[in-house]
Computed example of a mutant assay.
Amino acid sequence: MKPISSRFSIAVHILTLVSSSAQPCTWDFLAGSVYTNPVIIRKILGMLKKAGLVEVRAGTGGASLARPSSEITLLDVYRAVEAAAAEGLFSFHDHPNPACEIGRGIEDALQAELRAAQAALERSLAAATIEGLQGSILDGAV
């Protein structure tokens, strides 16, 4: 199975850092904390902006949250940066053999299980907020 890309963890890192800062965060500041290239930060900030999670000011204006961290769930972040959110987390192999008893029925039988697994993931992500994650980090609970 292809793992969820690092965009998700980077986006959560960015939002948690922006949430903890009293001032808008610059790309270079964010890139220094994430320890990655500012180009990656700009790309992910663009996705987060499109999703309405951050506001980005040109130049050295930096990024700030578009709504309170208590209202930004990890599911919001996942949907903002992962293509799998729209397509579904799991993909199925093309064209199982219809002449085979298992091949004929595997997709229908497995799809219900895969939908349930994705729903469980989404429920868990929906229950967690950037504010809660930030609190866990700052309280040393992790």
Rank of each mutant, 00 (worst) to 15 (best):
L89T: 06
E87T: 12
F90A: 06
N97V: 08
G103A: 07
H95T: 13
I102A: 04
A99S: 13
R104F: 13
S91A: 12
F92N: 08
C100A: 08
D108R: 06
G88W: 01
N97Y: 04
L114P: 04
E113I: 05
A99L: 11
D94V: 09
L110S: 14
A86K: 01
A112C: 07
E107L: 09
E113F: 05
Q111P: 00
S91R: 07
I106T: 10
I106C: 03
E113S: 13
Q111E: 14
A112W: 10
E101D: 14
H95Q: 13
E87L: 09
P98W: 08
D94K: 02
A86M: 00
F90V: 09
F90H: 12
E101W: 06
I102E: 04
G88P: 07
S91F: 05
F92W: 10
I106D: 02
H95W: 10
I106Q: 04
A86P: 01
A109G: 07
F92I: 14
R104H: 14
Q111Y: 13
E101G: 03
R104N: 12
P96H: 08
F92S: 08
E107Q: 10
R104C: 08
S91D: 14
E87N: 11
L110C: 10
A112N: 04
L114Q: 08
D108V: 13
R104S: 13
P98F: 10
G103H: 04
Q111W: 12
G103M: 02
Q111F: 14
E101A: 13
S91E: 15
F90P: 07
I106P: 01
D94R: 05
N97M: 05
I106E: 04
R104D: 15
H95L: 11
G88K: 01
P98N: 09
E107M: 05
H93T: 15
G88F: 03
A109T: 15
A109P: 02
F92K: 06
G105K: 07
A112R: 09
N97G: 05
F90Q: 03
A109D: 13
G105L: 06
H93I: 13
A112G: 09
F90G: 01
F92G: 03
L114Y: 14
F90Y: 15
Q111V: 15
P98M: 04
F90N: 06
P96Y: 11
G88E: 04
A99D: 15
G105P: 01
E101P: 02
H95I: 09
I102W: 10
E113V: 05
A109Q: 11
E107G: 01
A86W: 01
D94A: 11
L89N: 02
I106L: 07
G105E: 14
E87W: 00
C100T: 11
G103R: 01
G103S: 05
N97P: 03
H93N: 12
I102Q: 02
A109L: 09
H95E: 15
A99T: 09
F90E: 06
I106R: 00
A112V: 15
L89R: 01
A99Y: 12
G88M: 00
A86Q: 06
I106M: 00
D94C: 02
H93E: 15
R104E: 14
Q111D: 12
A99I: 04
L89V: 09
A109S: 11
L114H: 05
A85Q: 00
P98A: 07
D108L: 03
A86T: 06
L110A: 15
E107H: 13
E101R: 01
S91K: 10
E87Q: 13
A85H: 01
D94W: 07
L89H: 06
L89Q: 03
L114V: 11
